[in-house]
Structures are given as C-alpha cells and as structure tokens.
Simulated assay, not measured.
Amino acid sequence: MTREDMERVKADFVRAALWAVEAGFDWLELHCAHGYLLSAFICPLTNHRTDEYGGSLENRCRYPLEVFRALRAVWPEHLPMSVRISAHDWAPGGNTPDDAVEIARLFKEAGCDLIDVSSGQTTRLARPIYGRMYQTPFADRIRNEVGIATMAVGAIYEADHVNSIIAAGRADLCAIARPHLADPHWTLNQAARLGYTEVGWPKQYLSGKAQLERNLARASLERAEELAIRGV
C-alpha cells in the first residue's frame, strides 16, 4: 500500500465509525485479527514492508494504531471501543503470546478499552493446538499483565466455562459464537440449566420456558433419588 492507499482506507474506517455513531451503536470494535488488512500489518509472516511500517513489532503496529486513533477521535468518548487481535499466529516466525501482550499494551496506550483475544487465521502455515477454552490463557495474560479488560473467545461452549473464566479473573467478558449457531437459544437454555429464572424470554416463548424449567427440575429430582437409592 502506498501512503495514499493508507490514507484512503483510514478515511473509509472513519466513515464507517461515523455511520455507527449515527446508527446508535453502543460499542465499536476494530478488527485487527484473522488475516484481515490490519492483521496483515501486525503479523510478521505477512508484513514484508521495508519502510517504517515493517520490521519491528512497533513498526508493524504503526498503521493499525493510526487507524485506531482516527476512530477513537470520532467515536463518542463515553462509549467503549475494543480491538480484536490474533494473540498467537501458531506458526514459526509468527507472533507469540509474548508479542500479544505488547500489542495489547500499545492499543491500551492509544485509548483502547478492551482487547478481544482470538488467535490464528493469519497464515496457512498455522498449526493451532485446539482444546476446551484454548485461547483463554492469552486473554488471561493480557488482562493481568497489561491491566486492560479482555474478552475470551474460542471453544467456550458451556455456562460453567464462562462462569469459571470470569470468576477466576481470567477475562472480563466471554463471547459465545458457534454454540449459538447450533442453538440460537443457547443463552436461555444455559440459564435454565443453572436455575437462573430471571433471564428475559420473548413473550411468545414463555410457555416453553416454564416447560423447560419443569423438565429440568424433574430430571434433577430423579437423579437425586437415583443416587439416594444407590447410596451415593
């Protein structure tokens, strides 16, 4: 990208942010992960520039930070703004969780309120190590080493996962994505399983809420009676 290209794209980002303000959004996130343009600047495996926007981590973050500051200048000061990063490229020569801590620190200094901590999808060379809550350790490090709020994502699919992450101080928020693709009412079902009855349901679904809660209570009672009979 030439300097002219970079200014044009930055102006496009600013225009989008202003539209978000006009539309009444409450929260704005700048996507700097998963191989998209700003991510491609940050990742050493895709950034081959030899000017002030390539080379060191600080240089690779220079343009994403320019874009962020331009957005922060037009986004209402009282509203939160977050940045999503790939905290690990999962490939030799790529960014590591140590780099992610420094990236988060740079965005915090620029006025970021929260880091949305994902990983990978920056290069086809990536070999992620998947597992339950596998990206949460990255959110944990950034939150507790940088002192900025984080959102944990990735293979978080049970309410107990969320509760344990938040209660342990490993992140401030959790995003549940794919489980909602499989079950659009994941949040309502998990709340019912936890015995939390105060969550709001659409009026059209209230009869389903009552039935689900009765069925869960019955199943719990039957399980307790079974354990009692077995002397457990």
Rank of each mutant, 00 (worst) to 15 (best):
N59W: 01
A70Y: 10
W27V: 09
A104H: 00
V83R: 03
V74T: 13
D140E: 10
N47G: 13
G111M: 10
T46M: 09
D26Y: 01
M133Q: 15
C32I: 05
V146G: 01
M81I: 15
R49I: 11
E77I: 13
A100S: 14
D98Q: 12
C112M: 10
N95A: 14
V83K: 04
A100D: 03
R124I: 10
V74S: 09
R60K: 08
A91D: 14
H31Y: 06
L114W: 06
D51H: 06
Y63M: 11
A33F: 02
M133A: 15
A100R: 01
D26G: 10
A104M: 01
R127T: 15
G131L: 14
M81G: 08
V14E: 12
K108N: 08
E58R: 07
F13E: 04
T46E: 09
E109Q: 08
F107D: 02
S86M: 06
D140Q: 10
V67H: 06
F138R: 01
C61H: 04
H88L: 05
Y63L: 14
E52L: 13
T136P: 03
D51M: 11
G94H: 13
R127F: 07
S56Q: 04
R124L: 14
N95H: 10
T46C: 06
E77Q: 11
A17V: 11
F25A: 11
R141V: 02
A91M: 09
A11M: 04
C43D: 13
D113M: 05
D26H: 12
A20W: 07
S56P: 08
T50Q: 14
I42N: 03
A87L: 05
I142N: 00
E66L: 03
D99N: 12
L18P: 06
S39D: 10
W19S: 12
W27A: 07
C32D: 06
G120R: 01
C112G: 05
G94A: 09
G131C: 12
Q135K: 05
P97F: 05
M133I: 11
S118A: 13
L30M: 12
F25P: 07
T96D: 05
S56V: 02
S119Y: 08
C112N: 07
Q135W: 07
N144I: 00
A73T: 12
E66R: 01
T123C: 04
Y63D: 09
S82W: 06
V21T: 14
P76N: 10
E66N: 02
P64T: 02
F41C: 07
Q121D: 13
G120N: 11
N95Y: 04
D140M: 03
I103R: 00
A40Y: 03
N59M: 02
F107R: 01
S56K: 02
T50C: 09
R132Q: 14
P64V: 05
R143V: 00
S56T: 14
D51L: 10
G131H: 11
E58I: 00
T123L: 06
N47C: 13
L30D: 00
N144E: 03
G35Q: 02
P64R: 02
C32V: 12
G120D: 09
V21H: 07
L30Y: 00
H78K: 15
F25L: 11
I129V: 15
G120C: 08
G147Y: 03
